[in-house]
Design a protein around this nucleic acid. Structure first.
Lengths: 409, 409
DNA sequence: AGTATTTACGAACGCTCGCTATCTATACTG
DNA sequence: CAGTATAGATAGCGAGCGTTCGTAAATACT
């Protein structure tokens, strides 16, 4: 019964294609309302066709009608304008960490309706599920979205996520944590598709969407842990499921991966804990340095970068060492992927230009096409934003009958 | 005048979609001929629609009609069967190296019609153009394809190729060689689109096509030079144009890329020349070894692997060293890409299991998901095959109006 | 050898849809 | 208050697909 090739059919298929084409055109210009004439121009369809499609979409609740714009003082009869009715299918993004739960609600147009964050001092797995439920209801209330309207949920989880089964390897930090339980729990609260993905992947998706356009993006999440997501022309690259695990890159000439350890060599070498440790050691060796002054005994990763920004040579040496190790580890992948840009997010990204310049200098020696090196502008919201983004993509893919639309906006 | 979104139109558009759908169904089952009833089943269209489309495609020369199969002893009136008329748009693949020119002609169904190879002791750029012309006409004659029928040409060139302009950086080996001249020259001989791409990319495309299906493939070409191509779900990944340049991966802790040098650190460390040099040195150090016996003074890369296969410890040590350096250089990229398979082709691939096992052992220590590690079955034909494949893809993309077809065969 | 059966091709009819052209409605301008 | 420009609504036409029926060609049975 499996039809091999979709793509043809009767005239009703054609109709659906055209309706989808109109809807897609509206989506592209969201949140700006569009006049029918503009839709005619953008879709290349005839006016009656577009009008009929718009009627249909209005009835189905996908579009909403606007009154004539008071600012639009043009000649002639004022045009009816339509725009995406975002609340037709709101989506939910989850970012679940051991100490923090973030939930975001977005409408179809990608407008953020609400964002609720709750921090705690480390929950148990059971408590965490409870907290997640609370935060979800809170976020939905704030967005004024009934639970039954939610069209898709994407949750972010650290570790390596099997895209379909939702199984997670290498789960850290929360004992007894199971993403399968999470999925079940959420599906119990909200009757809609629930998906799970790696947090670095989702952050990459968000950053790619913010940058827009095509090309290859390597988005590094750099905190205590180290991961990366790859987005190629808007699509996430997953490999067999574990793509982007840069934390496990070997650094020393004799490093190997220890399957028992949930952290990889590069994480141990340049993760935020390692940076702080290097800083503390340097402060001990050079008690006269600005670094030692700043940090004292409770020296933090941020202190290292602050001291380096003040041109303390001791701190600068630490940053140099970290940048060198990072660049050497990443350079092979940059040569292979040849990305348009490399974006660094996560806690360490707060270091700013000090670190970025040091890495950039190193990469210049080790790569052919030097990609743009940037800091993530999304800061700590990257993962939730990406989760919402992915949920949106899922909804659109499910709702739009036409598989591929040309992306020439 | 630029219409933003294609995808809708009148009924003629629908017709074109359906015709394309039928053509695509025939293509999928090539070279097996299909009955109309089978096409009806596979496309999901009604019989008259399919029949009309088939008529149209027969008139246009895309399909050819078969007599009833004598082996098909079924009841009832024998069905007319149609199959792809490969000669409707034959394509040409070129593999141009300093010492060897290979030209392949393929029909639309991917059947190899001819393959002509000519070797020489190093031509000048001018001579090379002449040789290329000769080999092309020879290959076309053998395939019985008139020059004016050729629908697309793809040429392989070493170095980094800008996909559109055809400009080449890092050209080695042939002084005065310009890929632009090549394109002009070929376009003079054959009036059709001529494209150029990196040889490693094309080899990767061929290997991916041979393996079939989806997933991520990292195809390494390992000879004197070292390059790789990445194919993700059938599509080549180019990055900004220089993806896959693994030859430039730094090996030593202080390696840097020298922009003046056309060869990169890894090439210098484990290219076939380097392997031979390591072998010669080992033979000098251990004149009693099997390696020294085999190779003598003119010791070759092949001798090293042969001696290692005979369990000569000296040669095995060399292989071990090479495998280690290669695996350490490639491991980061495998972690990032997480490919389904890594396939090694090129001259060094002739080493066989000795090298493969050594690399595999190393990679097991350095990666999370261990990809399948294989040798290319295509041997020296990989690049031409890939060139033909790419030319085919180009023709199909140009001819099929529908952008995306589901790939669930 | 003649008939029945099975399978496939071919043609006519009706339906839906989109495009062109025309007409009506609305608001601003002089 | 008339004129004009823009937008929305409506009728007619053409094209394509799907359904249905009739016909052709081969095999199997009597």
């Amino acid at each position: 019964m499996s039809k091999g090739t979709v793509g043809g059919g009767g005239t009703t298929m054609l109709r659906r294609i055209n309706v989808a084409s109109v809807l897609d055109a509206v989506r592209r210009s969201a949140p700006a309302p569009l006049r029918v004439a503009e839709l005619v121009e953008r879709t290349g369809l005839a006016r009656p066709t577009v009008a009929q499609a718009v009627d249909e979409l209005l009835d189905a609740g996908w579009l909403q009608q606007h009154g004539p714009d008071s600012a639009d003082r043009s000649l002639g009869r004022p045009a009816i304008r339509v725009s995406l009715r975002g609340r037709a299918a709101p989506v939910l993004g989850l970012d679940v960490g051991p100490h923090r739960v973030t939930v975001g609600v977005s409408d179809l147009a990608g407008r953020k309706l609400s964002l609720v964050r709750r921090s705690g001092p480390g929950w148990t797995a059971q408590e965490l599920l409870g907290v997640i439920g609370e935060v979800i209801t809170e976020a939905l209330a704030e967005a004024e979205v009934p639970a039954e309207d939610v069209a898709a949920v994407v949750a972010a989880s650290p570790g390596i996520v099997d895209e379909h089964t939702g199984r997670v390897q290498l789960v850290p930090s929360v004992p007894g944590w199971s993403a399968i339980d999470l999925i079940k729990h959420v599906r119990g609260l909200l009757d809609c598709p629930v998906m799970l993905d790696n947090d670095a992947n989702l952050a990459a998706l968000a950053i790619a969407a913010a940058r827009g356009g095509t090309g290859t993006l390597l988005a590094v999440q750099w905190g205590e842990r180290l991961g990366a997501g790859i987005v190629i022309d808007g699509r996430l690259h997953r490999g067999t499921g574990a793509a982007g695990e840069i934390g496990f890159i070997a650094t020393g000439p004799d490093d190997v991966i220890n399957p028992e350890d949930s952290r990889g060599p590069l994480e141990r070498a340049v993760g935020s804990e390692a940076i702080a440790a290097l800083g503390r050691q340097a402060a001990l060796d050079h008690p006269e340095s600005r670094l030692a002054e700043l940090g004292g005994d409770q020296l933090d990763t941020a202190d290292v970068f602050a001291a380096a920004a003040e041109r303390d040579p001791v701190a600068q040496a630490v940053v140099q060492q970290v940048a060198r190790a990072f660049a050497r580890a990443l350079a092979p992948s940059i040569l292979v992927l040849d990305p348009t840009a490399v974006v660094i997010g996560g806690g360490v990204a707060r270091a700013g230009a000090v670190l970025l310049d040091a890495i950039s200098d190193q990469l210049r020696l080790l790569t052919l096409n030097h990609p743009k090196l940037e800091l993530s502008a999304l800061a700590e919201d990257a993962v939730v934003t990406g989760a919402m983004r992915m949920a949106l993509d899922e909804v659109w893919q499910r709702k739009l009958p036409t598989p591929a639309m040309t992306s020439t906006t």
